[in-house]
C-alpha cells in the first residue's frame, strides 16, 4: 500500500490520498490524472487496467484503487 501511496503522490502532488475518500465524486482527480495513474499502475504492477475499469467506485479512494490493483494481479 505504501508503494501505491508513493505512486499516487508522485502523480498528483496536490491531492491528499491518505485522507480523501471521494476523489472522483469531489472532482479531486481529473481524467488526465486518472490516465496518468492507470499508466503508472499498469507499468509498476505489470497489470492491465482498461477503459472499462474506469468507474468512480474504483478510483474514489487509495484503498479502492489498491483493491482494483489486487484484483487485476490475481487475474493475471
Amino acid at each position: 500500500m505504501d508503494e501505491l501511496y508513493e505512486l499516487l503522490e508522485d502523480c498528483c502532488p496536490d491531492v491528499d490520498f491518505r485522507a480523501e475518500t471521494h476523489l472522483i465524486d469531489d472532482e479531486l482527480l481529473e481524467s488526465l490524472d486518472i490516465v496518468m495513474i492507470v499508466g503508472e499502475l499498469n507499468d509498476r504492477f505489470d497489470i492491465s487496467i482498461s477503459a472499462d475499469d474506469l468507474l468512480p467506485e474504483h478510483f474514489n479512494s487509495a484503498e479502492a484503487i489498491w483493491n482494483l490493483v489486487q484484483q487485476r494481479m490475481n487475474e493475471d
Binding site: 481524467s31 486518472i34 490516465v35 507499468d43
Partner: peptide
C-alpha cells in the same frame, strides 16, 4: 469525448506501448 474517445484511446494497446517507450 472523455468516455468514448479520451479513455479508450489513452488506455489502448497502442498508447500503452507508447507509454512504455516514453519511460
Amino acid at each position: 469525448m472523455k468516455d468514448y474517445l479520451f479513455y479508450p484511446l489513452a488506455l489502448s494497446k497502442s498508447f500503452q506501448r507508447f507509454s512504455k517507450w516514453c519511460r
